[in-house]
Simulated assay, not measured.
Amino acid sequence: MTKTYNVLFLCTGNSARSILGEAIMNAEGAGKFHAYSAGSRPAGDVNPHALELLQRLGHDVSGLRSKSWDEFALPDAPKMDFVFTVCDQAAAEECPFWPGQPMTAHWGLADPAAVRGSNVEINLAFSETYRMLRQRISTFASLPIASLDRLSLKNRLDAIGRDQTHADAN
């Protein structure tokens, strides 16, 4: 029996990038990973463009909701193995204490919800964010986690966030 790793994607509003990360990881890493998302100051609603994109691409969106990262710092919350910040604001904020000392990395991406313009421009921004997250998550999901020492794994997680082309170089 293989371990299922819990992964938390964090962003300030938990309405777009972290939600996309949660949905992609749950699809890409089914059986190996269980993903969650949260925000330091949750927007309260999932961005409709994020939901529409995920539905169009065949993701289950039924359980997606904007929520506070405080939920995952509670004693009865799932123990996280990995925590990824996907926006600059969440990376710079003081995070709650995560029981079990999960591996952390910053995978910063531009906020597609901040794009102003036509629906085509907004949809393009969300599609590009989805593509980049999916690429990072696919690389992460293919890592031989159990056989890597903690430092090597941390280096690879950081490389994934910095530059996708160098993620396998460490």
Rank of each mutant, 00 (worst) to 15 (best):
D45K: 08
I160R: 08
A16T: 10
L64W: 00
A110L: 10
E121C: 02
A43E: 06
I145V: 13
T139L: 15
A73N: 15
L143N: 10
D60M: 05
Q164N: 15
N119E: 04
R116N: 02
T4V: 14
G29V: 04
T12A: 15
R134A: 08
A50M: 02
D163H: 14
R150F: 06
L148M: 14
F97K: 11
C11G: 14
S18R: 10
A92F: 13
D70A: 13
P96R: 14
L51D: 05
T2M: 15
A90K: 08
Y36T: 02
G29L: 12
E121F: 01
G21E: 00
L109G: 00
N6W: 14
Y130P: 03
A38C: 06
T104G: 11
A16Y: 10
N14L: 06
T12C: 08
L143A: 13
L20Q: 07
P78E: 04
G108K: 00
V120S: 07
S62N: 09
T4Q: 14
N14A: 01
A105F: 05
R41L: 03
R131C: 03
A50T: 04
S152G: 14
P78K: 13
E28R: 05
N123G: 09
G108N: 05
G117K: 06
G44D: 06
T12D: 10
L64E: 11
E28I: 09
A38N: 00
L143S: 13
T104A: 08
Y5A: 13
A146H: 12
E28W: 00
E52A: 11
F126V: 02
L157Y: 13
A110K: 04
Q89F: 12
R65K: 14
L143I: 12
S15Y: 15
L74S: 13
P96K: 12
E121R: 06
A38H: 00
M103T: 01
A110S: 07
D60N: 05
H34S: 01
L153G: 14
G21R: 13
M103L: 10
Q164H: 14
Y130Q: 02
A38K: 01
L10M: 15
E121N: 03
R56A: 07
M132F: 02
D76H: 15
H166C: 12
R131V: 01
